[in-house]
Simulated assay, not measured.
Amino acid sequence: MKLFTYQPPQIPWLDIRYQDRDIVVLNKPSGLLSNPGRAENTYDCAINRLLNYAPDAILVHRLDCATSGIMVFALNKKAESNIKTQFQNRLTEKYYVAEVIGQVSQDEGVIELGMMADKANPPLQRLDESGKAAKTYYQVLERRVNTTLVKLKPITGRTHQLRLHMKALGHTIIGDDFYGNDTVIAASPRLNLHAQSLSFTHPYSNKPLTFTSQHPF
């Protein structure tokens, strides 16, 4: 694992894809934290950037720092409660696109492997049958020369779930400097994992909404 140095991208500073009186949807770049950590140098993050533009913005879910893609933020407490409940009750639908090392042989499948925190190596996680249940569907989108593009649909939302499940399949996400070997890390300057689509119900109109952002790899 490489030593982590936080250097968030400055361009785009704030990629807003949608806004109304209740919600804001962002396309978060890889390398930007969703919310600040304990260290002072982590103040620059998605929620703090958004607060400069929309002072009432509230974080309702997170993406890993290295993961890019669609995030939704609430603009009032009622919207926050509504959207958080949708996430908790698995009423939202989301899928990711990842580029993984090697050729995935099966066109699609499901991975069900329990997970828990690796207390000896924070913030890493590890697979463990006694851990929390974790389930991921995958589908091959494109087989490339040395990599495969896959669509990933997590049914549960465990920390680093997609990273560990693809590694367990034998196809680590390229650029993964937490769980990848030197070949995996050298294959991309970033983690090639992107939250491409998020669907949920609008907290006030109750209309179904879907937001997408094309993966950059």
Rank of each mutant, 00 (worst) to 15 (best):
T5Q: 14
Y6C: 08
Y18K: 05
D22F: 12
I23L: 07
V24K: 05
V25Y: 10
N27E: 01
P36M: 07
G37K: 02
A39W: 12
N41S: 08
D44I: 14
C45Y: 04
A46F: 10
I47A: 07
R49N: 04
L51C: 06
Y53E: 12
P55W: 14
A57F: 05
I58H: 10
L59G: 05
H61S: 09
A66K: 14
T67P: 00
G69I: 11
M71R: 06
V72F: 07
F73Y: 11
A74S: 07
K78S: 13
K78V: 11
A79M: 02
E80R: 08
S81C: 08
I83P: 01
I83Y: 06
K84S: 10
T85V: 00
Q88V: 01
Q88H: 00
Y96N: 03
V97L: 12
G109W: 15
G109I: 14
E112I: 14
D118Q: 11
K119Q: 09
N121T: 07
N121Y: 12
P122N: 11
P122W: 13
L124E: 08
R126M: 07
D128E: 03
E129W: 09
E129S: 14
K132S: 08
K135V: 15
Y137Q: 05
Y137W: 08
L141D: 07
E142P: 06
E142A: 12
N146R: 12
K151Y: 01
K151I: 00
L152P: 02
T156A: 00
R163F: 03
L164C: 04
L169D: 02
L169F: 00
G170Q: 04
G170A: 04
D177M: 10
F178I: 01
G180W: 09
G180H: 08
T183E: 15
V184T: 13
S188G: 04
S188N: 12
P189E: 07
L191D: 05
H194L: 03
S197P: 06
L198A: 07
L198T: 12
H202T: 04
S205N: 13
S205R: 13
L209A: 06
S213L: 12
S213K: 11
S213M: 12
F217Q: 02
